[in-house]
Design a protein around this nucleic acid. Structure first.
Lengths: 200, 200
DNA sequence: TCTCATAACTGAGCTTGATCAGTATTTGTT
DNA sequence: AACAAATACTGATCAAGCTCAGTTATGAGA
């Protein structure tokens, strides 16, 4: 009766179930109380699996956070791409991509900052980490396209500038000094830093 | 018999001694084996103090690393400032500031990356962290001066660009993807990213 | 010198992320 | 169905950063 193209064996089905339970459990707990105030034991209990099993699905607590946040981040990118489509001014168009990412990142600030920390300092070999890196690469690509279109520069130059936009976004969202800033203020801070770069 | 201007009481002298022993112990152990492979217990033992005492002088292991690396970083900045003084080309001058910092940071790559991580994600209220932030501010200032002098732009613009240089430096040194790069390669990578920015 | 308040020190013990030897489940084969 | 091999699961246990109640050292006042 399965509508799926590849009929999965019981083993694969169980694994998929467990991963879903883990993602749900971690997502709920992290969202409610922040990564740092949730123990891996709690996540395992809520997902109804053994402690050790949890670490088969995410090798570290950081990887677990990446697993949870990646899908949100993916949605933010899509939103940004759509929002930027109709804007002609380079600065405004880039900020249209930036804003949803900042919003997503600040939904729960501790989780957001820890997410960034994991992306940069975590193990790039881990599967959820690879996904996260792919998403940042995608963000950069979107920014590069927007810059190329709206400012008419060479695609190569656009890509270089997109990289810088990435770096500025990252540090502005991550820096301890900015923890008290609202989404608007973070976006404005990024805008200020990018003004020189994009006014070309 | 003290030649010091302010004759310290025994209490203050003891504290100074301990801090020195801690700095020396941590510095030697971290340099030899990297932060992650040294336990705080080992540092305490080598400094000949109790476990708890260590945490009176550095509230976390990360703070301990900041304490150890700050002085090296300060030297790197001085070297960079001196090296850049005689260079007229903006790109080359900025890279002259960048290179010693990268060298210093890569002397022991794990320590260098953890140092960066602590600066961005650590507690900015902690004393050693404040020192580290002051050093990064100083770096940015030096870069801004160099840009203003060599490229003749408005000081305000120079400062904005210096900030971007900082961000690019940070991410290039910190990123997991670049762990295998040599000092030269890191500098070259940074140079590539900054080319668009500084060619103005 | 004796006493007391303050500051500094200490290490046993707690918390928690992560491991791994042992157990259970699934799948393929005869 | 019976068996074996492969894969997945488990929780007692470990390691290490950090805490805190109890102890010791210091310096000021009598």
């Amino acid at each position: 009766m399965s509508l799926d193209a590849t009929p999965l064996g019981r083993r694969e089905r169980n694994k998929r179930d467990k991963l879903e339970r883990i993602t749900a459990a971690a997502g709920e707990l992290f969202a409610a109380r922040g990564v740092d105030d949730v123990t891996t034991q709690e996540v395992a209990d809520r997902a109804d699996i053994g402690t050790g099993t949890l670490f088969l699905y995410a090798r570290t607590k950081g990887e677990l956070l990446l697993l949870v946040q990646n899908s949100m981040y993916a949605e933010a990118i899509d939103r940004g791409r759509a929002d930027a489509a109709g804007i002609d001014d380079v600065g405004a168009a880039v900020l249209a991509v930036v804003r949803p990412v900042v919003e997503c990142n600040r939904k729960q600030i501790d989780n957001g900052r820890t997410y960034l920390r994991e992306i940069v300092f975590g193990d790039p070999e881990e599967p959820h980490h690879r996904d996260a890196l792919a998403l940042t690469a995608q963000t950069e690509e979107v920014v590069a396209e927007v810059i190329a279109r709206a400012s008419g520069v060479d695609p190569e130059v656009a890509r270089a500038r997109a990289r810088i936009v990435s770096a500025v976004m990252f540090l502005t969202m991550a820096a301890s000094i900015n923890v008290h800033l609202s989404v608007d203020e973070v976006v404005e801070e990024i805008a200020g830093q990018l003004r020189t770069l994009l006014a070309a």
